[in-house]
Design a protein around this nucleic acid. Structure first.
Lengths: 341, 341
DNA sequence: TTGTAGGCGTTATCAG
DNA sequence: CTGATAACGCCTACAA
């Protein structure tokens, strides 16, 4: 049952390895008879090419690397889904690594993937990452690279993103439309681009509606967790009891927030209207159902890997490839937590 | 910046490839001076061994394959986490594939992994799988295999499981202790072992308490989804309005169930007490908070990969390895949905 | 139409 | 202590 090689097939058939190889790869210069004999025997013996040898010969691994900050987040596990699927369709397998939002880990993992000689890398950056050396390194080595969701603006590679500013603006505008006058923002960490953009969107919406921006109403997550949501809920009630609307960086944190509000009997949305981001599954079943911004996670994964494969194939054919940035649409989803009818 | 080989280092230093190789691998029979020269130059040139060549030579890929039914499920994304992490610690990378609960896909994916020549395979079976040919195939080829959570009892390989029967019995006993007299069970599909075992546990608990088992009170999920939960809620209310307790195959379905109960105003746990399984995050924030059985997902992943690595290493050292089955403890978590104090 | 030879980059054996 | 040589399995000019 063990690993059949071209050599063994050749010996059994009394022909050369070359001919066997050619027959199996449908080269034109093999007689019909030989070809059939080879193919039949190969099938009978369950021949499969030794991928190690093929890799070495072709310098391709038919493997791509995927680095994400956190498998457990709804948005990312959704994306993994589509990436794996699309990769498989195209004959690629996916090695997944998790940076845990740590740049140190991310650096190591990039190195692992480079050493593994994956054919391309998909990455969503950790909160600590900018366009650092490890990422430049990938590009310098001409390894196809696509960033998605959490990107480094400066990087000269393909990117798949949403318009975080616009999406945030719409979300906050919605709160204002519901009559909110004093809107707080629970933002993501200082560094990542999407946290920055959502924060800018928040400010722009206020500005547009002539509401003066108050930095004291901005709370900054460190870890973007459920627990932080609870913590900020307490703080807000304490420091700004008259806040009547909150825009939250992501649904998970909003869930923490609302859990606390539920517990102490604050009425949502009547007293405080809340909107999250990313449309986690939990938001549609939580009480109250949580308003949010839907990100096309599945599509984002698919587009990202398609871009990557495009670049891989261009390189193979020696066609020049220019990085593209693709922006996907988001969708405001209004549910109970912000709807004041 | 491109790929440095042993040959290049050897040429620059005017020594043989062999010596370079030995120096880098700390063979004892290289002079200190040569070793240093080699290591210094290698570092300067950022030499990393070509993994394709290493794979071919050593017949190892330092890669393991992981097949799971569904990335999106809380339990599995949790497990992915620990597997990736533990693998990385030991110098292995993980290729992840998703069977979508389809045996057809699973078969293909096993084939892909075998052809890729991964060093070992971790699998949690699809709902449609038993100990079928594709799994036997793995074992026949002497590729180390560990099954976890959803296993095939007959397979002669290592397994990591929980005691589903016992856990289910405890859950149902708890409902009985809360005064439930007529307990329904929403079970998983017919085939998978854990659905069967939980069902058996349910029956045993009834038996032990002299409650006659009524097959009409058993509802069988096809896809184990939130939507099915809603559907069964309707059916149960319709067909057995006097049911006062429900044991559900998994929290996700329980969430569907409870959403419907909330909507139509059925009081949980007073009218109907509900307990789920797997301790999804959502269960601790849902209203009412959902009682459940905690599975040690993180530990399960860690134990599974450790077993796999143990087998891989035994094989390398030609030490015989006997498959082990490890059973992990579960934990009954009582929350609002079943607590009738 | 078939086969020979060389090479991908590394490692292991064995001789010097 | 060092190096020549072969082998891992496959692919592809080139020759016959």
């Amino acid at each position: 049952m063990n690993n059949i090689t071209l050599k063994e097939i050749a010996e059994k058939l009394g022909i050369s390895i070359t001919t066997v190889s050619k027959a199996l790869k449908n080269y034109p210069d093999v007689s019909e008879k030989t070809r059939k004999a080879v193919i039949d025997l190969a099938q009978e013996l369950h021949y499969t090419p030794n991928s190690f040898a093929v890799n070495l010969r072709t310098k391709e691994s038919k493997t791509i690397g995927l680095i994400i900050p956190e498998v457990m987040h709804h948005f990312f596990s959704n994306i993994i889904n589509s990436i794996i699927e699309e990769a498989e369709k195209n004959g690629y397998l996916v090695i997944i690594l998790q940076s845990n939002e740590s740049i140190e880990l991310e650096i190591k993992q990039v190195e692992l993937l480079i050493n593994k000689r994956v054919d391309g890398i998909l990455i969503s950056l950790s909160n600590e990452s900018n366009y650092n050396e490890h990422l430049q390194n990938i590009i310098n080595r001409k390894i196809p690279l696509v960033m998605f969701d959490k990107i480094a603006k400066l990087a000269n590679c393909s990117k798949v993103i949403i318009n975080d500013q616009k999406a945030a603006m719409n979300a906050v505008q919605h709160l204002i439309d519901q009559g909110c006058k004093k809107i707080a923002h629970i933002r993501g960490p200082e560094n990542p681009q999407n946290a920055i953009d959502r924060f800018i969107g928040y400010k722009k919406a206020l500005e547009k509606n002539n509401i003066t921006f108050d930095p004291n109403l901005v709370y900054t997550c460190k870890n973007v967790t459920f627990e932080e949501g609870i913590e900020f809920a307490k703080q807000i009630i304490n420091e700004h009891p008259d806040v009547d609307g909150i825009f939250v960086i992501t649904d998970l944190v909003a869930v923490g927030l609302l859990s606390h509000f539920n517990e102490i009997g604050i009425k949502v949305p009547q007293q405080i209207a809340v909107i999250g981001f990313s449309n986690w599954f939990i938001s549609q079943v939580f009480t109250p159902k949580i308003s949010t911004v839907d990100q096309p996670s599945h599509e984002m994964g698919t587009v990202a890997i398609k871009l990557l494969l495009e670049e891989i194939n261009s390189n193979k054919d020696k066609i020049p490839f220019s990085p593209k940035t693709i922006e996907l649409d988001t969708n405001l989803i209004v549910r109970e937590s912000s709807k004041r009818v």
